[in-house]
Write a protein that binds this DNA or RNA. Structure first.
Lengths: 143, 143
DNA sequence: AAGTCGATGAATATCACTTTCATGATGGCG
DNA sequence: CGCCATCATGAAAGTGATATTCATCGACTT
């Protein structure tokens, strides 16, 4: 699966006439083996540990590229940082966000999705995407 | 209702030992007779038309004050600006956001709320608040 | 191997707030 | 009514995160 995503990115790069670089390889590797909701800063710091000469701007630009390639999605959880979430094939999910420890869980609910479409239809809206986040305390922090 | 909200704010001001000022009166008036999802910038520009000497910082601080007083709520719709939404008594609603014209509509759906709680419970989460936004084209922009 | 054009990193710019600071008002008190 | 301790205001400066610039570097075609 990691292999498949690398292929997707390689194809994207080729198709756009862009170039393969050491940095892009390293960043993609690191991204693919990371937490599913990483901020630019977090990924940058993680990378710096092993590759002290990778610049913040490169991480920033590469993450944007991942989003364009369909490998990642930009998300905001209200902590002032944009986070990049991994994107699988056609998959969608919503989030549970712990307001105490910052932990983020994912969930899916077919029924909720259906109801959303109903609401939109009744208003003449054509929904392209949605976001649903539940903020509160995770099981660990409730103690 | 506008009268009631002014009363709420007056009480809030008094209770905190703050002061009534011309600016606060003007800003509250303008806020109450505005679109329900105004950004600081938008309200500031609207105000400048009639009151050229009101500063951005004052609008900013006053809006924060409205939020503390329970008259407004800060919201993010992904356009990079914080918007202040009017808050009624204990009311809650979600949003339909048009990605083309920026139009924002509100809706409520009891069943969706219930399903959200079920999902959270099954994960051991205690939900404090949530956000649900449907992004797409409004009826006007679909043509 | 050489040239062309995208990629990189450091530095700088932007953007939307957020805070500071000198000056102006408000409202409790005598 | 006038004082004056405090809070409020507006202009300007500060922040934090993101976005862009620019000189230089490195891929990939020929």
């Amino acid at each position: 699966m990691k292999r498949a995503k690398k292929k997707i990115f390689a194809d994207f790069i080729a198709q756009r006439g862009l170039k393969t670089t050491k940095q892009r390889d390293i960043i993609l590797d690191s991204f693919l083996s990371s937490d599913r909701h990483l901020s630019i800063e977090e990924l940058y710091l993680k990378l710096r540990a092993k590759h002290p000469n990778i610049g913040y701007a490169t991480v920033y630009r590469t993450l944007k590229l991942f989003a364009e390639a369909g490998l990642a999605r930009e998300m905001q959880f209200g902590d002032g940082q944009t986070r990049y979430e991994h994107v699988g094939e056609g998959e969608h999910h919503d989030h549970l966000v712990c307001t105490r420890c910052g932990h983020i869980e994912e969930f899916e609910n077919e029924t909720i999705e259906k109801l959303q479409d109903e609401v939109a239809n009744s208003r003449g809206f054509l929904v392209e995407r949605h976001r649903l986040e539940l903020y509160g305390l995770c099981s660990g922090c409730r103690k």
